[in-house]
Design a protein around this nucleic acid. Sequence first.
DNA 1: AGGTCTAAATTTAGGCATGAACGTACTCCG
DNA 2: CGGAGTACGTTCATGCCTAAATTTAGACCT
Lengths: 210, 210
Amino acid sequence: MARAAGGDGPADGTDSPNRTDRTDGADGAEGVPGHAVEEIAAAWQRERPGTPVSSIGVVTPLWQLAKLFGDDRRRVLTAAGMDVATLDLLSVLRRAGSPYTLTTRELAARSLVSAGAVSQRVARAERDGLVTRRPGTGRPRSVLVELTDAGHQRVEATVDDVLGREAELLGGLSAEQQEQLAGLLRLLLADVRRRLGDDERLTQVGLLPQ
Amino acid sequence: MARAAGGDGPADGTDSPNRTDRTDGADGAEGVPGHAVEEIAAAWQRERPGTPVSSIGVVTPLWQLAKLFGDDRRRVLTAAGMDVATLDLLSVLRRAGSPYTLTTRELAARSLVSAGAVSQRVARAERDGLVTRRPGTGRPRSVLVELTDAGHQRVEATVDDVLGREAELLGGLSAEQQEQLAGLLRLLLADVRRRLGDDERLTQVGLLPQ
DNA sequence: AGGTCTAAATTTAGGCATGAACGTACTCCG
DNA sequence: CGGAGTACGTTCATGCCTAAATTTAGACCT
């Protein structure tokens, strides 16, 4: 997605050769394909000694990976006539199991998006016949959202593709590395969630990825 | 974020009690504050045996963490009269060192956003007097973007806050754990970038975080 | 030398998210 | 019992991004 316009053509494949002859000089180790993250912290240190760079080693790649995975998923889904937000919604309902019904309140909590966003997601999905909406009997103004057959089918048709693709992208890491990484991320997530969510009720989770 | 409307009130503290009396039954270990990621893979397995869930342990927390860090950063910056996209732009220029000038082409590559997004970011920043734009002498239609003094000051005023805050959020992990995590993320990032970017020139990096 | 090709930036259209204002249906207390 | 509170879903304005169309400036070939 750092891609410019121009569809899927051969694009600028003839790109790297004449790369270092431009504006440079202010750029250090540029042109090297894999210079990456370390360079960012180093640049801050060089330009602004004392900058608290300790977080960069974790946060930057985290960010980039999320962006890369997200963009990739979007592309996969667009090709299948689907979009990320809708799949997220449908997946949460699908995963919940029969009767595939949840309140918008829970949907918000499990999707990690705002209540307003859920309202809009559900409205779109309802317009497309993928879910239905009806008043619930529980709390005050509660609303129950239920997956339709069409919605059910849409999930079945795309989930494996998306998850399979992601597994493929993780293929560069060994099973142990993946496990180790998953463990550390889980640990960090729990801690961060406690620090933020604690007094801010990001309470539940159950998010995005499928 | 996952908050509804209505300011900062005590919100739904009285929430968990009457939670299981609604739609549930299809919800397993719900209500538990920290049920999290494992539950997602388990739910897929239960509902749809054979679903390729192997990636979930890594991708889901990755995603959630990026969202949490991103939202938090946005809040910090909003309070300071700044926004994430602009700080990203200014930071890249600041880090590049004197003369704090880069082409839009490079800005796009280093920010991991589309060319159109860069155009808009620069236009906004220029309108606010944070950067200037002028034709370059290099390639055909190249444009040089340079940080103004005002832009320079804006970076100085916010970077430490943002980075400091992030370091704080990482505080739950020991230095070794952070390092280990950083290493695995770096490894994965390099590999993913190769798989995607290789034939698609997400070539450069140098992204977001600060 | 001139026409065509190519690559880069910008513009435009559309999607989705946040946050704040609303409307409203229970709850709880006097 | 009745009125204020309060929690929840929706609506609205705004922001940012992607993808596609558009504009334009050099490069290359004959």
